[in-house]
C-alpha cells in the first residue's frame, strides 16, 4: 500500500473531462470516465465516475461544491486518484471527557447526537485535542471529519479557515 495524502479543502472547480496530463498518470482501463477535482488550495484529484464508488463520491463532491463547504479527500500522490471521500461537518464543541476505555477521549458535538471519539493513537491526537479545547472555551465551531462507521475523529480544522493539506501517512 503506497502513501496517501489527506486533504481538507473547498472545491474550486470540477472538470467533467479530466485533462490529458492527469489522465496520463492514471492506469487507464476500458470504460473509465475520469473527472478532475481542483481544490482551492491548488491540489488536484481525479475520480473515475464510471462506477461506484467514484460515481457516488462525485455526487457528494458536487453537492458540497455547490454549498461551498469543505471536503475531506485522500489522494494517491503517484496517480492523483482520489481514494476516499468524507464529509467534514461544522460543529460547536460540547463536553470533552475520557472515554469508557480511559485511554481515548469522547467528544460531544452540539449539533450531533452521535458519540465521537478521539483516539490517543491518532498521530495528531494532541494537536486536535488542543484545537477542540480552544474551540470549546471560545464557543467556536470547528470542521470535524470522522470515520464512516466508528465516528473516530480523523481531522479537526478551525472554522475560519477552510484549507490545508495534512501529512502523508
Amino acid at each position: 500500500m503506497g502513501d496517501v495524502t489527506s486533504l481538507v479543502d473547498t472545491i474550486a472547480t470540477i472538470e467533467e473531462a479530466a485533462p490529458e496530463q492527469l489522465k496520463a498518470r492514471v492506469r487507464q482501463e476500458a470504460g473509465q470516465q475520469l473527472v478532475a477535482i481542483r481544490f482551492a488550495g491548488g491540489s488536484v484529484g481525479v475520480l473515475d465516475v464510471s462506477a461506484s464508488p467514484g460515481s457516488v463520491w462525485a455526487s457528494v463532491l458536487r453537492n458540497l461544491h455547490e454549498l461551498a463547504q469543505p471536503v475531506y479527500v485522500e489522494i494517491n500522490p503517484a496517480t492523483d486518484l482520489i481514494t476516499q471521500v468524507l464529509q467534514p461537518k461544522l460543529q460547536p464543541v460540547g463536553a470533552i471527557e475520557p472515554a469508557e476505555n480511559r485511554a481515548d477521549m469522547r467528544v460531544e458535538f452540539l449539533r450531533s447526537h452521535s458519540r465521537h471519539f478521539l483516539r490517543r493513537t491518532h498521530p495528531r491526537y494532541a494537536a486536535m485535542l488542543q484545537l477542540l479545547r480552544e474551540a470549546q472555551a471560545k464557543n467556536l465551531s470547528v470542521w470535524v471529519t470522522d470515520s464512516l462507521n466508528t465516528h473516530e475523529i480523523l481531522d479537526v480544522r478551525p472554522s475560519q479557515t477552510s484549507g490545508g493539506k495534512s501529512e502523508t501517512r
Binding site: P53, V56, W57, S59, N63, L67, V85, L86, Q87, L148
Partner: peptide, 15 residues
Amino acid sequence: NTYRNELKLRAASGD
C-alpha cells in the same frame, strides 16, 4: 442534506 451524503458515502464504501 448532510446525512443523505453520509448515507451515500457509506453505501459506496466496502460495506
